[in-house]
Design a protein around this nucleic acid. Sequence first.
DNA 1: CTGAAAGCGCTTACAG
DNA 2: CTGAAAGCGCTTACAG
Lengths: 345, 345
Amino acid sequence: MTTESRRGARRSRATTLTDVARLAGVSVATASKALNGRDQVKAETRVRVVEAAERLSFSPNALARGLLQGRSGTVGLITSDLDGRFSIPVLMGAEDAFGTGSVSVFLCDARGDAIRERHHVNALLSQRVDGLIVVGYQTDPRPSLGPDLPVPVVYAYAPSESPDDVSITADNVEAGAMAVEHLLSCGRRRIAHISGDPTYTAAQDRSRGALRALDDAGLSMVGDQTYFGAWTEAWGRAAARLVHRQHPDLDAIFCGSDQIARGVLDTLGELGRDVPRDVSVIGFDNWEAIATGARPALTSIDMNLETIGERAAKRLFRAIDGDAPSGVESVSCRLVTRESTLTLD
Amino acid sequence: MTTESRRGARRSRATTLTDVARLAGVSVATASKALNGRDQVKAETRVRVVEAAERLSFSPNALARGLLQGRSGTVGLITSDLDGRFSIPVLMGAEDAFGTGSVSVFLCDARGDAIRERHHVNALLSQRVDGLIVVGYQTDPRPSLGPDLPVPVVYAYAPSESPDDVSITADNVEAGAMAVEHLLSCGRRRIAHISGDPTYTAAQDRSRGALRALDDAGLSMVGDQTYFGAWTEAWGRAAARLVHRQHPDLDAIFCGSDQIARGVLDTLGELGRDVPRDVSVIGFDNWEAIATGARPALTSIDMNLETIGERAAKRLFRAIDGDAPSGVESVSCRLVTRESTLTLD
DNA sequence: CTGAAAGCGCTTACAG
DNA sequence: CTGAAAGCGCTTACAG
């Protein structure tokens, strides 16, 4: 560590509206109106005030304004797994919807700990946030923060257990059907489904959707079951070997995650089966680095997490304005086609 | 979307210190002192006030306090690539250091856009943050926000171009040496280095460190160069094929990223070379999902990004308290050993 | 069109 | 040990 200088804390007092008013030769009341676009101000006066504000690099004190107006212009975002891949896109979508600069977002990571979550909620309430978004890392319903909070709350990705809350989540049932329908449209008929931890609602939902789509086509799953296991490459490798041994005639595998799909691709390669000629493979999550790095690149389902974040932010806005229809809203997933399911005819 | 109820915005006014004081039968001044642990309060009175506060679920208004004290108890964190993998750990480390509840963190994603960054800085200054942390997604020095900000700034991962600023970054030179030294300690002597985009300072630094370590051991790089390319699996596959053709006697490959390493593993497998028996492979980034999913699991270098975040937060605290030694501080990386470099003798 | 005054919720000298 | 008063920086009726 180099220590080139040691600056003290002698930072000058920030300029206030009073400074601006003085420089412009008006009262603070008039200065306030001028800067906030109120219309009872002579044009010429407004110009003088605006110029003064610029000269002094005036930055209005949001704390004072918030105190007075009862709105802070801030929102709290509580996540439970920042390092996971699911919260971030939701968070980005929300940030987008809030708009640069108009609303500032507090971020807290509760690390899946209820106590820590409580602490964060209290801190945010103390900061007088105008609302909260709670982001989960899986679609299993989570406990509600309760009906007694002084600000509106929207649950994103992981819906709240309470029907009185507002939740936005992904439609994994539809997504499962979407994956299977894509494989069917590629001419596949002997479709297996290898997925992750069966205790995840998401895993069950995708499986149900897949089953429904197969049913609608008069088909059933290869092996008459979903091969549940873990959300890992290792499970993908092992499961593919197992399924292939029992059903060497399969012509497609729907994988519950892109990581599982990577493992499946490895095994199929070792078994000498060409993807996509012999077997089509579709993943889930559309995790760019994983899906595009695969050989062949993986077709996948994208949960549109940014959209979930955006919707959550918009619903929160509405709720802050007093319009809060409760219930769960699902966002549709989308198919992202790559080489692993290319039809070659 | 179900619409089960439509709650209005009729949220009751938050309880204030005045309410608490009234219930406790004291003045607001005394209530304030009691709750803030000032010692000029009779024990019995304090108890009454605390009980009243609890009964009313009193949450002190941080805006009012901040306005008065000139400190908001908030900090701004500006990142340029939330979706990237580098900002998040830094951010988590910082959050940890700030401590749950005592400081609230505003998060902004500038998306690598200077204009947007300016907007965010202004918004944060308006919110009267006590300080800023700017997180980059690569170690190339970035433009300073300038010396004229009213609050201290710490740059994390991407250092500031200005030596007058405070920056915390990763020591990639040392890391390069560390990787090579590990391979040497595994008994390897014919070491190649395949890396990513050569315009990244990180790529150059790692290469320099590797070269130094080889030099110190009286060795040189296989092919007498670093094979620069892209940070992708595809490049790892291609480069491994190339290097192996020219130098089939190589016994280790130091990869500039875990993704590159995955590609290298694939190619070595296809060429019938056993890892780690014939060739040791080491990656970089310690990207869990990628490194542990590989077969064999990848030894890798972890940049300790959480530590960078922690240090940044601590330095920011010191700077807020007026103690701001400027310059760049580097954080050491660490080796995470897995199977891809296991010594088998 | 402009400004004096009140007040948002809190803390901190200052008297008592 | 307790409380009345001033004030942080702003906005908003209300007079003029």
